[in-house]
Design a protein around this nucleic acid. Structure first.
Lengths: 195, 195
DNA sequence: ATCCCATATTGACTGTTAGTCATTTTTGTG
DNA sequence: CACAAAAATGACTAACAGTCAATATGGGAT
């Protein structure tokens, strides 16, 4: 009588419907009851996998952010023929393009590209290696003899600049559209790298 | 029998106690009942002045941000003897120092120095003149013959960079303490201004 | 196939909260 | 003082989060 239920199938359904509702109506305007109704599970099931609504949101952000950067790093690997600063900009550009294509995802995670701006828990998990970019950056600085007084701080500033400006530009089209904004952003990043 | 009640006295009390509770326990963990109990007014009174809890939060953010930048601009006026880029950095430095001194205020508004990162409504109100800094910036660019392809975008990037990095640094001490971070930040801003 | 038990799932229940609105109180004005 | 407009009230309703005793499920042993 029962169709096959993969392990964690109900957890996955909650993640899926939570993402749908959060990006559709915002986290504040979504109730747990709504999520479980759409997912076809009981309310209690929600609390087996998530502490509360914001825990679900955090887990979604971490998962989506990781995938976004992971794909960008994979693409870079296939192209490996760039200058150091072009590599960094390649990653940033890929992530931006992906977010423009997928506005649902953008709305959902854009607040968190800028690592400081979300919960301590997300920061802790994401900061560990800045989604894989930190290794690439520090390795590149060494191998290319880039002169930076403090590479960690430079990377930190680049990430914060990209995260906060892109969120503003993409979601509000202010003061400029993204494609026009890119050259300004990338020029600034190059300046920051070539101290 | 009644002590004198200034006009909007109850609204002011709600603002005051709302600020206290929001910075003490966070907006999510504060109920409207708590606010009105502390303020000594009835629940219905809250809804005379505010749409909901987040409306109160927004009004507080706008008020506090405005005061912060207004004071900084006043201080600059009294000193007027600086280079253009030093003026911009003076404003930023004053705001940062004020936030370090007043961590309650910092916790409360730091998410909103970066204009893109809050509600559309706050953005609309604050963006109008970027808290008084926009006029100063554009006037300075003209008068000092600064060569910028697009001054609005440069200002936009500076504000976003300052807002997001300062929030991360001050609240999380990562990856560096604020006083040590300042030179890096100001050097980057100078580079952005002197394209 | 049947029993058994650990594990997953359920949804009715409780306490809390947001937001409403008919009623009451206060204020300003003639 | 009278009286209307404006401000304030708080009991009420509907909706919600989170709990937990009861139930269902799945898979290993016999």
């Amino acid at each position: 009588m029962n169709v096959f239920n993969g392990k964690n199938e109900k957890r996955e359904k909650i993640l899926k419907e939570g993402f749908f509702l959060f990006q559709q109506k915002g986290t504040e305007n979504t109730s747990i009851q709504e999520i479980v109704d759409r997912a076809g599970v009981a309310k209690g099931t929600f609390y087996l996998y998530f502490k509360d609504k914001y825990d679900l949101q955090e887990q979604l952000i971490i998962k989506q952010s990781y995938e976004l950067f992971h794909h960008a790093l994979e693409k870079l690997e296939q192209e490996k023929k760039k200058e150091f600063d072009e590599e960094i900009i390649f990653i940033i550009n890929d992530v931006i393009d992906e977010l423009i294509k997928n506005q649902h995802l953008l709305k959902f995670i854009s607040r968190n590209l800028s690592f400081g701006l979300y919960s301590d828990r997300i920061s802790e998990i994401i900061d560990e290696n800045n989604l894989g970019v930190k290794d690439l950056f520090l390795k590149g600085v060494k191998e290319n003899n880039i002169k930076l007084e403090n590479p960690d701080i430079t990377l930190f500033m680049i990430i914060e600049l990209v995260g906060s400006t892109c969120f503003s530009v993409i979601t509000k089209n202010k003061p400029i559209a993204m494609e026009e904004f890119k050259p300004f952003l990338y020029r600034t990043i190059k300046k920051m790298i070539n101290e």
